[in-house]
Simulated assay, not measured.
Amino acid sequence: MKPFCFADGKIIATEAAALHPSDLGLIRGYGIFDFFRTVNYQPLFLEDYLDRFIRSAERTYIPLAYNREELRTIIHQLIQKNDLKEGGIRMVLSGGISENHFSPGEGKLFIFAESLSFPSEDKYQNGIKLLSLEYVRPVAEIKTTNYALAVWHSAGWKKQGAEDVLYYQGSYISESSRSNFFIVKNGQLITPDSNILLGITRKNVIELAGGAQIRPVTFQEIRDADEAFITSTTKVILPVTQIDDLKIGTGKPGPVTLGLLERFRAMVSQNTSVNS
């Protein structure tokens, strides 16, 4: 964490930020968050993230005491206060203190500035392995703070040489624990349409590629895929070359994935080349 955060209605020392022990964010794991990058002091895709954060607050019935303009102002102030040229901003809205310890109350807003690290370049060049896991995140379309299963399950990932998991239900796959999932077949991008978070990087990758088939995706299609990759704020476009014991395509990152990664990085560099 960087030295300063937003809490209790003002920018304070991060170490002074506190949550009431009866807050639903603690006792029920109920809250929302969002996370985005800063590049050259500019918050990347900020309006998209604000859209999702405000919508998530509404859909989880947690009061958010700040409007879009106020959130935008706080974020820019925090970036400057922390000299956050390249890093991450995490917005968290807790479930609040509830009279019955169950119903959402008035949420408490925290905004933190953080250092940011990406996967090693070796993973972009050679790809990663995912482990399949039958699971659907509760209210998957909302970025809640409930990552209990993934955190618990992650204790065994490294032993199996895996980076993350790939969730599925029945014959259909959905998403990774913190990323969206794509396959490539005959040059066409295909990505699941349900039981997923509508990722901001996902959205921009689809636009950059000129479209994608957004529909149910089966395990059989993964077996027949030419390429696969995941997308997220912290992973950008990360090639997937193996799921469980199944190698994807040639077992190496493919030209479509690597081409999109190069174009995405160029787009970010071009759009943030002038200081805000």
Rank of each mutant, 00 (worst) to 15 (best):
K123N: 12
G127E: 02
I128K: 05
I128R: 08
L130Y: 05
L130F: 11
L130P: 06
L131H: 13
L131Y: 11
S132D: 11
E134M: 02
E134G: 08
E134H: 02
E134N: 09
Y135L: 07
Y135D: 03
V136P: 00
V139H: 09
V139I: 13
V139P: 12
E141I: 13
I142Y: 01
K143F: 00
Y147K: 03
A148F: 11
A150V: 09
A150I: 12
A150L: 13
V151D: 07
W152Y: 15
W152I: 14
S154M: 06
S154H: 07
S154T: 08
A155E: 15
Q160A: 13
G161N: 03
A162Y: 11
E163W: 11
Y167Q: 12
S171D: 14
Y172C: 14
I173Y: 02
S174I: 01
S177T: 12
S177N: 08
S179Y: 09
N180F: 08
F182H: 04
V184C: 02
N186Y: 11
G187L: 00
L189K: 03
P192I: 05
D193A: 14
D193Q: 05
S194R: 14
S194Q: 13
N195A: 02
N195I: 04
N195L: 05
N195Q: 05
I196H: 04
I196Y: 01
I196N: 04
L197A: 05
I200V: 13
T201E: 10
R202V: 07
N204F: 07
V205N: 12
V205Y: 13
I206V: 08
L208A: 06
L208H: 06
A209F: 04
G210Q: 03
I214R: 04
P216Y: 00
P216L: 00
V217S: 01
F219M: 15
F219W: 09
I222F: 12
I222H: 14
R223K: 15
D224M: 15
D224H: 14
A225I: 01
D226Y: 00
D226N: 03
A228D: 03
I230M: 14
S232T: 06
V236R: 15
V240W: 02
I243K: 07
G249Y: 02
T250M: 09
T250S: 03
T250W: 04
G254C: 02
L260D: 08
L260T: 01
E262Q: 13
R265D: 06
A266Q: 11
A266K: 10
